[in-house]
Structures are given as C-alpha cells and as structure tokens.
Design a protein around this nucleic acid. Structure first.
Lengths: 227, 227
DNA sequence: TTATTAATGTGATGCGAATCACAAATTTTA
DNA sequence: TAAAATTTGTGATTCGCATCACATTAATAA
C-alpha cells in the first residue's frame, strides 16, 4: 500500500533508511490519536516507547509540585519524543500533552532498540538530533541565566521562528503564536511580561502583531540584537 | 606497554570495547596538558575533536557579549567533551577552560566518526551519555524557570553532589566546593546570594560548611525539600 | 613571617519584574 | 448571533534579589 508509511521518510532519524526498512518500521508501530489537551504521557510513568508525531502539535513540559509549568519544547509533524526513557531506562522526566488533535506513531522500546543495533545509521542520526537538542537546551540555560525579561522573550520568539517560521524576503512569520501563558512558561517570565514585551517590540518596529500571527520584520537584526 | 591506556576503560563510551580496540584508540589519539586557567577550546572556533579528561577539572561555559559567564558543567576525570561539534559539524557553542592543571586525551573528528561507524556499541553508549546530559539540562531549565534563588542554589549543590560527592552513612560530602562566583555562574544568581543562601542552609541544619568542604547532612531530606 | 592578593560575609539601596486587579478584546459554544 | 468563557492589555503595588560598598577572612607570594 503505497504512501501509508510516507510520514516516516520525513523523520530525520529514519530518512537515511531504504524503503524496505521504512515499510518494516511502519509495520512494527501503531498509530494513535489524541484529542486536544489530552495527556500522551506523564512524568514519572514508566514503560517506554518512541512517539513520532504524524500530525498535530505536542507540548513537552515539566511541572513543579505547586502546579506551575515549564514548557521545554513544542513539537510538530515528524518530530519525535520519548527516546530518553528508552535509552537510559529511567522513568520519564516530562509530560507530553496534545496541543491540538494529534496523531502519533508509536514504536515500543524493544523494537526501537533492535532498530538501533541493526541500523547504525539510525544511531548516528539520533546522535545528531540529540546534539541539536542539547545545543538548544544550552542556549536556553544561557538565556535564562544571563538575560533580562526582554532577552528571554526574544530568545523564545527566535526559537519558535526557527521551528515553525515561514521566511518571505527577510520577514519571518509565525502563523500561530502560542498563547501568552505558554510563551511565559517557555520564557520563564510572567504572562503580563510577555504582553508588555511583545508590544514594546512592536513599538520599536522590530515585529508586527495581528491576532495570533507574529512577523519578525528584520530577522537578522532581531537575531543580532538579542542573540 | 600495559597500563598506558587504562584511563580509557573508565570512559563510559569506551567501556564496552575489548582491550584490543582500546589499545587502538589509545594509539590514534594524543595526550596534551593544560595549565590551570588555560583555554582548551573556544566558542565559535571550528575544527573539532573529542577531548577525554585523563586528569584534572575542566569548566564548560558560555559567555555573553558583556563578559558574564554561565557555567554549563564542570567535568572531571574520564568525562569527555567536544562531541557536539563532531556530530553536527557546527562550530563550538561553548568554552572549555582548565580549572586546574589538566591532562586530556584528544581524538580527531574523523577518527572518532570512524569509531562510531565501526563500533555501534560506542554509539549506543554515547546516546546514553547525551541522554543523561539532556536530562540534566532539562532539570536545570526547570530550576532556572520555576525556582527562587534558594531553590536554584540547592539544585546546583545537588548537581555537584551527584557528580563528585562522597557518600558516608547518609551524609554526602563535597570535598572541594567551587568558588562562590563559579557557583553563582552555575546557579544563575549573584555571588552574594550564594554566600547568604549557603549560610541560611547551614543555620537550618541542612548542611555543614568548613572552608571549601560542604556536607549535606541529610541528603534525602535535602533532595526532597528542593527537588 | 609579613605583605599582597583573592575570596567571603553582610548591611543598605534600588530596580526589574512578579503579582494583583480589572477592563477590553477575542474566541468558543450554545 | 448572543452569551459565556478565554485570552489579552495595562495600570498600581509589592517584593526578591542584584548591585553597591566595604569589612573580614583566607590563600598566595615575597
């Protein structure tokens, strides 16, 4: 059945595999749908699997005892998660919640480990992906440590732009900016500060806001100013 | 020459390899010494290699334009660094500076990549190590985002305890606590706050301080309180 | 040992941003 | 399309902690 496993081709860690292997992977996994706001997996839960997002958006977060939340990342189509628990066998350290109705492809731990042993190129690709995430995490730590609220907000905007921004002649557009509360949970500031800062950026002519659309008017300059 | 490559046995990513392969690795790399405070590698520098610490301590940090520093980690014997630039080919994102006179073992990029392809078990072990680092990074992001100064300091102390703490009947001892300024750069607070917070912990009976030695009197309770 | 430099302790002050409070606007649903 | 529920905007207030300033102690060099 041609096309049924196409989505796997766009997953970075599988993209180097030949068609036959991709088909095989498609068979060992299962698809599953999650409604908006539903929990895909929970902190401290064990039993592990790799989740590949076929369609939708998923929020990866950690929460404190008193219920406050840090959003570590927002993942979209062909991103994956759940690999950490598979690799080190420890319990999960984060939650995954569907931000919109989402479909995910699930590969169980053993099958995935098997894949790693049989196809070293998957390991290498996975190493590259983890490296990318580690770089992003280090950047975030730097921002949280050294920057003021304005700088933190800018860093989050840039991160989202890198993830889902559309570039059109120097202008980067984010179609559906997350809610201010979510931005706050990503930036480590308050919701009110997000509101004030975005408007201050707009006043300075750095960005343009209309409803949930955000345009970075001069991406290079913005990056330069707040990198 | 027996013993010359012993240090490689304790490096997690090599520990699964047979003696012969270890010997081979020992031959393709070179040793190098760095005096205290010397730069081992610099941000934005390219040309990559894997560095394994044979002896000493190395500080991995990032700096802002105005010279302020975030310490991402402090590494010791048989830890390694430099793998990110190797894996994704991008320029370095951090500095490495010798905190004391240190000896490192250097494997050039190509040789290391070769090793990864020929020995999948190295890849898997490396994946585990990167996962561990990612977990630590996520924890730090959570602490920086959600916790107050006290919580941040506690998190750093716990991290150091995990890295180099000696356990003796429920008491965890850190022999050589980093300087307050370095602790501040790790915790994302000021030097003064480190001083005040440590004394406040001591007053509460949570820790004991004597010169550069720190004892966490009730590790479990401390972890519980500030986790 | 003494002199010099580095690291730490601790009060006083000020500022950035969290929090509170509520109005306005937008989105959802009935 | 109106009503209800979210989400956003924006002032006023509070508070944590960075910063400043300097004394004290510890480490290093002379």
């Amino acid at each position: 059945m041609q096309g049924s496993s196409d989505f796997l081709l766009y997953v970075p860690i599988f993209s180097e595999l030949d068609e036959e292997t991709i088909e095989k992977i498609a068979k060992i996994g299962t698809k599953r749908c999650y409604k908006k706001d539903n929990i895909i997996l929970m902190e401290e839960e064990d039993g592990s699997a790799l989740f590949v997002i076929i369609d939708g958006k998923v929020k990866i977060s950690r929460t404190s005892n008193d219920g406050r939340e840090v959003i570590l990342s927002i993942l979209g189509e062909s991103d994956f998660f759940g690999e950490m628990a598979i690799l080190d066998g420890l319990t999960r350290s984060a939650n995954a919640i569907a931000l919109e109705d989402s479909t995910v492809f699930i590969i169980q731990r053993d099958q995935f480990l098997d894949l790693l042993y049989k196809h070293p190129e998957v390991s290498i690709a996975l190493l590259q992906e983890l490296t990318k995430r580690l770089r992003a995490a280090d950047m975030k730590i730097k921002a949280l440590t050294l920057k003021d609220a304005e700088g933190k907000v800018a860093t989050v905007i840039l991160q989202i732009a890198d993830d889902v921004g559309m570039i059109r002649q120097g202008v980067v557009e984010i179609e559906k900016l997350p809610l201010q509360q979510d931005l706050a949970n990503m930036a480590g500031t308050s919701r009110e500060t997000i509101s004030r800062t975005l408007h201050s950026f707009a006043k300075k002519g750095l960005i343009e806001l209309e409803s949930s659309r955000l345009r970075i008017l001069n991406y290079e300059k913005f990056k330069e100013t707040y990198h």
